[in-house]
């Protein structure tokens, strides 16, 4: 459910680093929690993300959540396919359901992100709080 090789934010986004760029998506837990996703609002290419700040929204038919940037940087690519097929976030959150690619401004920020194991622990804690 939480593939190796990715870094995870406590706000339930994943980051896959390739050179100085990072691909961003939401985790299995996040999409499962939201239920059937019906709409995604994404930033434009060129927008500046700030770590920890909202960069878009995701809607299921009865809930709205925000995406929070796992790292800061400029958006270089967004997944346009999500506009017509937001359900990709449910069906393939680590593959076709990627959200955007960001040019990582400050690699040091990645140190706060979690490993798959730590993230899984974090999710378990969340479920217990409920």
């Amino acid at each position: 459910m939480y593939p190796e090789g990715l870094k995870y934010a406590k706000t339930h986004e994943w980051l896959k680093v390739e050179d100085n760029e990072g691909k961003v998506g939401i985790t299995y837990y996040a999409q499962d929690h939201l239920g059937d996703i019906t709409f995604v609002e994404l930033p434009q290419v060129g927008a500046e993300l700030i770590k920890g700040k909202s960069f878009g929204t995701v809607e299921s038919f009865k809930a709205v959540s925000e995406f929070y940037a796992p790292v800061s940087g400029k958006v270089v690519q967004v997944n346009k396919g999500l506009r017509d097929n937001p359900e990709l976030l449910n069906q393939d959150p680590y593959g076709q359901g990627w959200i955007l690619v960001v040019e990582i401004a400050n690699p040091a920020e990645m140190e706060e992100l979690l490993s798959p194991g730590d993230y899984e622990q974090w999710v378990k804690q969340q479920e217990e709080v409920e």
Binding site: G35, D36, I37, T38, E59, S60, F61, P86, E87
Partner: peptide, 12 residues
């Protein structure tokens, strides 16, 4: 008269 309806499809 109807069962549970597909609300996700209605919103998409």
């Amino acid at each position: 008269p109807v069962g549970r309806l597909d609300e996700a499809a209605a919103a998409r």
